[in-house]
């Protein structure tokens, strides 16, 4: 059932499909207390989903990044997180250094 719709309609549908989760989140959260165990559990799940997503993007990327060897991707991430901790948790330093290291390795590859 592939309907040929324009790019604009596709974007609107994708946006609606994303908003669905935000909407359900608002409805469900209105029944919960901020300090309650349910919220703490959901917070842990939300962080874990972000960690799972970032690890998946790093180890099993889709598209262009998949053409870069795994060791270069891991090296870029290791440099970034390493600099982050060395600079007493300066995320800007970590992100910039890690990305530049990655670009240098890709360019030299």
């Amino acid at each position: 059932m592939n309907v040929d719709i324009g790019p604009l309609s596709l974007i609107l549908l994708a946006a609606a499909a994303t908003f669905l989760w935000r909407f359900l989140g608002v409805i469900l959260s209105s029944r919960l207390r901020p300090e309650g165990a349910w919220i703490q559990w959901m917070t842990a799940v939300a962080y874990a989903v972000l960690a799972a997503l970032a690890a998946r993007m790093l180890v099993l990327p889709v598209g262009e990044l998949a053409t870069i060897p795994l060791w270069i991707r891991l090296a870029g991430a290791a440099v970034g997180i390493g600099v982050f901790f060395v600079t007493k948790r300066n995320a800007l330093a970590g992100v910039v250094t890690g990305t530049l290291a990655f670009i240098a390795l890709v360019a030299g590859h």
Partner: peptide, 14 residues
């Protein structure tokens, strides 16, 4: 984008 379900539940009470 399903992560917005737990994320919204976690943030909105605050």
């Amino acid at each position: 984008n399903l992560r917005f379900l737990p994320m919204t539940i976690a943030v909105m009470p605050h």
